[in-house]
């Protein structure tokens, strides 16, 4: 009997995931995958930072961003900058523009609300 229950539970989960085209991640995996997606835009954000450094070589600080990840599509929406951010507004705007619309592939069955911090350091 127990074997039947396990087998059918697994089957049901797999069927549901296959049908929706997305997966159900653990919170840790979700956090890691979103971060990896954000990091695909690091080059663009670094360009913004270098442009700022050209006018002021001492620019540095943190930008805390919050956003939502839509379920299934994995699209990042509603990007906002937390007031605790210490970097110039130009960098906050740059991050918001860069990451808005990114999408996890595959998406997740669960939506998410995320908080990530960018730290700007002059190398």
């Amino acid at each position: 009997m127990k074997t039947h229950i396990k087998r059918f539970t697994t089957f049901a989960i797999c069927t549901a995931m296959f049908a929706s085209g997305c997966i159900l991640r653990s919170t840790e995996d979700y956090t890691r995958d979103v971060r990896a997606e954000l990091e695909t835009k690091n080059g663009d954000i670094r360009s913004c930072y270098d442009a700022q450094l050209a006018s002021d070589p001492s620019v540095s600080g943190d930008v805390v961003v919050t956003f939502k990840v839509a379920k299934k599509s994995g699209t990042i929406t509603d990007v906002a900058v937390d007031p605790s951010s210490t970097a110039p507004a130009a960098l906050s705007d740059c991050i918001a523009t860069s990451i808005d619309g990114l999408a996890l592939d595959p998406g997740d069955m669960a939506p998410a609300e995320a908080t990530y911090t960018y730290r700007f350091k002059a190398g």
């Binding site: 971060r35 954000l38 990091e39 690091n42 954000i45 670094r46 930072y49 270098d50 700022q52 450094l53 050209a54 070589p57 620019v59 943190d62 990530y116 911090t117 960018y118 730290r119 700007f120 350091k121 002059a122 190398g123």
Partner: peptide
């Protein structure tokens, strides 16, 4: 944090 290292001119 995601660290962005810039290059000052």
């Amino acid at each position: 944090a995601i660290t962005i290292s810039g290059t000052p001119p």
